[in-house]
Amino acid sequence: MSDSPVSDSTLSASTAPGETASVRARPPRGLGLALLASELAILFRRTRTIAMLAALAAVPILIAVAVRVSSSGSSGRGPAFIDQITQNGLFVGVAGLILCIPLFLPLTVGVAAGDTIAGEASHGTLRYLLVAPAGRVRLLIVKFLGTVAFCIAAPLVVVLAGTVIGAILFPLGNVTLLSGDTVSISESLGRALLMSAYVSVSLIGLSAIGLFISTLTDTPVGAMAATIVISVAAQVVGSLDQLAWLHPWLFSYHWLGVVDMLRQPILWSSFGDNAILQLGYVIVFGALAYSRFVTKSILS
């Protein structure tokens, strides 16, 4: 009935009194990266995000301060990494990162990913973004990239805060790796950043799950809690020998493989296996989120 592009003829015909009346259809300009820039700005300027990153930064700082205050030399107890801090401040960031992997990092990622769509829905801004129109697929991609940015920032903050406080409170020196080799300060800093990148990749599968859960509800807290519960559940399952057949499929399977970045030579296969596993999660849960979100009735 209205196949023909009627706009041109009717716009000029029906609005004779006011020549300024009609707006010409505006084609999209470029990729529209402004929305991504705005998403990142809102995410990282938000008090909640800043508080989460500050809490993460506090972990290595607390470790370092606690070790320094009670430094009676090596007691032989506690994790090996913590013991090494006193000899070399460069270990503080690494120790903090490993300590944050099982719970603190998944927790903050669960908050960031669970909030993506459900948070917009609860504010009511989802309908205004879509009417703008943001485009549902574009919005989903922007939201996912936002959580990926958070996954990059979160471990980085731990490593940087740890390295800085370590440099302040403890002596620095060449680092002895797990394999027994010794590397220079500058290379050990590179290793720390590599570990941070490994952990970022590790968290991406979880953020895809969080994104999908976030499309299911209008209650961000529910989506956050569900994502966090899933990350804990995956690690519980991962510790049960009876379910060993399932372990390679868990997104948390390679999480502690981050220490392979401390070997000489670096076990790149560990990095690659982890990346492939996470990519699989992104594809599966990205597809689920897509199929859910493009057909979702926006009633919030």
Binding site: R26, A34, S38, L129, P133
Partner: peptide, 16 residues
């Protein structure tokens, strides 16, 4: 408003 305007790909960001 700035945020919601970035959602619309058809507008000119320079005039935002």
């Amino acid at each position: 408003l700035h945020r919601l305007d970035t959602a619309d790909r058809s507008v000119d960001g320079a005039t935002r």
